Amino acid sequence: MLYIFDMGNVIIDIDFKRVLGVWSNFSGTPLATLTERFSMGEVFQKHERGEISDEEFAAELCHELGIALSFEQFSLGWQSVFVGLRPEVIEIFKTLRQQGHRVVVLSNTNRLHLDFWPQNYPEIEANTDAIYLSQNIGMRKPEPGIFQHVLAHEGVSAGEAVFFDDVTENIEAARAVGIESVWVEDNQTVPKYFS
């Protein structure tokens, strides 16, 4: 079988409030104001598809939020999204691979995060067979093409794959392509599935 795992809140705990908190401190703008203004809109999606640079993304997002940050301040905030690795999931990866299954990551991500998580969480790359990232592929979940891209690269049919993600929209999209999909509600979902 091919097991496909999302990254955020599946393998690594993430918390977007932490990002806005750092930006709030740097800009002097109340957290409540930033929370109200922030949305994962077109700029966010373009960045995850690799259509705009990190610097353009930072500038456009700061403009949307009405704050002035240096690129360094923006980046420090952006990386604070990561809370910590879920070690029990890494153990499951090890077991699955020992059993002869393939384990891959499929993540909507961006170059800024690529400069961060491989260094801070090397266990992910060490215990997976492949990592598929939206910014490298030019597509992002829930676009059907990104799931088809992974299946084609892995040489398997949709019926031979299981997908884990914390976003219901992505789960529905994968199911529409024919992939068995598991909505990860909390840090117990993946261990329970394999118990």
Rank of each mutant, 00 (worst) to 15 (best):
L96C: 01
G66K: 00
V105P: 07
L65R: 06
L69E: 02
P87M: 14
S53D: 12
L65F: 13
K94E: 13
P87D: 13
S70Y: 02
I92H: 04
L85S: 09
L69A: 08
L61T: 13
Q73I: 09
V81E: 08
K94G: 00
L96H: 05
T109I: 09
E64Y: 02
E88T: 11
L114H: 07
I90M: 07
H113L: 10
V104H: 11
K94C: 11
L65D: 04
K94H: 10
F74W: 10
Q99A: 15
L114F: 05
E72I: 07
G100Q: 11
L96Y: 05
E72C: 05
D115E: 15
G66R: 01
N110H: 11
G84T: 03
L65Q: 10
L96R: 06
V89Y: 06
L65S: 09
L106F: 08
T95S: 13
F57M: 09
L65N: 09
V105G: 10
A68V: 15
E60G: 00
N108E: 11
D54F: 01
R97C: 04
A58D: 08
H101M: 04
I67D: 05
F74K: 09
K94R: 15
R111G: 03
N110L: 06
F116V: 04
S80D: 14
T95Q: 14
V105C: 13
Q73E: 15
A58L: 02
S53I: 11
I92K: 05
L76E: 15
L114Y: 10
F93M: 13
E64K: 13
E64D: 13
F57L: 11
N108A: 05
L112M: 15
H101K: 01
L65P: 12
L61R: 05
V103A: 08
P87A: 14
E60K: 13
L69G: 03
A58F: 07
L112V: 07
S70G: 12
S53P: 13
L85C: 04
F57R: 01
L114R: 07
T95C: 00
V103Q: 04
I67N: 05
T109D: 08
G84V: 04
K94D: 03
F71D: 12
I92T: 03
H113N: 03
V105R: 11
H63A: 15
S80M: 10
F82Y: 14
W117S: 02
A59Q: 04
L69T: 06
A68Q: 13
E88F: 08
E91D: 11
V89N: 03
V104S: 06
W117K: 02
Q99R: 15
D54E: 14
D54T: 14
E55D: 11
L114E: 11
L85H: 06
F82C: 01
G84W: 06
V104Q: 04
H101N: 14
V103D: 05
F71A: 12
S107L: 02
L96I: 00
Q79W: 14
V104E: 10
A68C: 09
